[in-house]
């Protein structure tokens, strides 16, 4: 994980993928459902991520916007997309702060574009906050309960 940590050329500050950054402009969820060729979409907090499920195959980038870090709907959106089998880039954008990184990562985000760039060292520590986890989530880490009974 640490190797892939670093600034990429655009506004994406942290990226945990080896493929090329997909930086076509994003469209809204409504436009994505109407437009057959869109490959990048941006989810706002009030959008229902599930309407994207039929289009996941053609999407290379889904941005989830956090206008305010206190609005946690994007965490559910991210997990729902991963649960539906989405494997493209899932990017958290907006009011993304150090202390949300570890949870966002667990919910399936693999790219982070904070409005205000974060301290690299603080972020590195934040991504590594949990040696182990109590819940099964999109990162599919083995849980503490599973480790206890293996």
């Amino acid at each position: 994980m640490d190797n892939s940590l670093g600034r990429s050329p655009d506004e994406v500050q942290f990226r945990f993928r080896d493929d090329e950054v997909a930086d076509h402009g994003t469209v809204t969820v409504d436009a994505c459902c109407d437009q057959t060729n869109a490959t990048a979409v941006r989810i706002e907090p009030g959008d229902d991520a599930r309407v994207l499920v039929p289009f996941l195959d053609r999407l290379a980038l889904i941005e989830v916007n956090f206008p305010a870090y206190t609005d946690g709907r994007g965490y559910s959106a991210a997990r729902i997309l991963r649960e539906a089998g989405y494997t493209g880039e899932l990017r958290a954008v907006g009011d993304v702060l150090i202390d949300q990184l570890s949870h966002m990562r667990r919910c399936g985000f693999d790219a982070f574009a904070p409005d205000t760039p974060l301290d690299e060292e603080d972020a590195k520590r934040a991504f590594a906050t949990w040696d182990n986890v109590y819940q099964s989530a999109a990162d599919r880490r083995r849980t503490i309960q599973e480790l206890r009974h293996e």
Partner: peptide, 8 residues
């Protein structure tokens, strides 16, 4: 405890 989806 530390549920990733339900902290906000």
């Amino acid at each position: 405890s530390f549920h990733p989806e339900f902290t906000y």
